[in-house]
Amino acid sequence: MSIQNEKELKGILRVGKFVGRLRDFLMEKSKEGISTFALDQMAKVVFEKAGALSAPKHDYKFPGYTCISVNHEIAHGIPSRDRILKDGDLVNIDVSARLDDFYADTGISFVVGDSSSQELRHLCEVAKLGTEAAINVAHTGNLLRHLGREIQQTANRNGFKVIKNLAGHGTGRKLHEEPEVLVYENKRDKRTLTSGLVLAIESFVSTRSEMAVELSDGWTLSTLDRSYVAQCEHTVIVMDGQAIVATR
């Protein structure tokens, strides 16, 4: 969507604040020994208390309130009683919601516990840096493809790759809207960013693989070669100057 008035701006900021706080709460609760199902049930309580709807559950009948992916899983991981977090696990928590008819989407990857896996911690940091670099160029009149360029260049400078068949997207009135926000630069794309455009900008930074595959459960996206992928996602509003990050 493209924001047209103060009511719409306040609506996006409100739902963005909600998913951002829930993301951070679930990250804090992601300790060794907890199941991803237990984390998702915590999210269920928060959704219901706020009068918000889980966007993947409401819009797509996803079997969870949040997507929680572990280790070689990239995205859309189904919360499970059998998936118990361990020290050193790479976890991605993705939270998207509908609140008062507005949508926002956010996600973060992190390493559980005090594991000394510096590569995974660095991977997560580079995912954050890539998303921030894209946000920094998300201003009116810039080319849409420059967001992907920033994400890919950040990954490559740090010795990593990007997952090329996953992307960010427009959001606001629906969870997934146009335009698709690639994590690499397509130089044939001449589209420019317009003021008020709401985007879910996300990085998918990989240790090796450049492709995601869907597992047999019909939801979970993973790597074939067991490489690791970190994601960082924020819902932002394109402005004439610095973009507004609704999910900070």
Rank of each mutant, 00 (worst) to 15 (best):
I84S: 12
K86V: 08
G88I: 13
D89Q: 10
D89H: 04
L90R: 01
L90W: 03
N92H: 15
N92S: 14
I93T: 09
I93C: 14
A97I: 10
A97Q: 06
L99S: 00
D100E: 15
D101W: 06
Y103E: 00
D105V: 13
T106M: 05
I108T: 07
I108F: 08
S109P: 04
V112E: 10
G113T: 03
D114Y: 12
D114S: 14
D114R: 13
S115C: 11
S115I: 03
S116N: 13
S117A: 12
Q118N: 09
E119T: 08
E119K: 14
L120G: 00
R121N: 04
R121M: 04
H122K: 13
H122E: 00
E125L: 10
V126Q: 03
V126N: 01
A127Q: 05
A127K: 05
T131H: 08
T131D: 11
T131F: 08
E132M: 12
A133M: 07
A133I: 04
A134T: 05
I135R: 07
N136T: 00
A138G: 12
H139A: 09
H139I: 06
T140L: 09
N142H: 09
L143R: 15
L147S: 14
G148T: 07
G148F: 04
I151M: 09
I151W: 07
I151D: 07
Q152E: 15
Q153S: 11
Q153I: 11
T154E: 06
T154D: 02
N156V: 13
N156T: 13
R157T: 10
R157N: 15
N158P: 01
G159H: 12
G159C: 12
F160C: 02
F160S: 00
F160A: 02
V162T: 15
K164R: 14
L166P: 12
H169V: 11
T171P: 01
G172F: 07
K174I: 05
E178W: 00
E178M: 00
P179H: 00
E180N: 10
V181T: 08
V181Y: 05
V181I: 13
L182V: 01
V183W: 01
Y184H: 08
K187E: 15
R188T: 14
R188H: 14
R188Y: 12
R188S: 15
K190N: 09
K190A: 09
K190H: 08
L193R: 06
L193W: 07
L193Q: 03
S195L: 00
G196S: 03
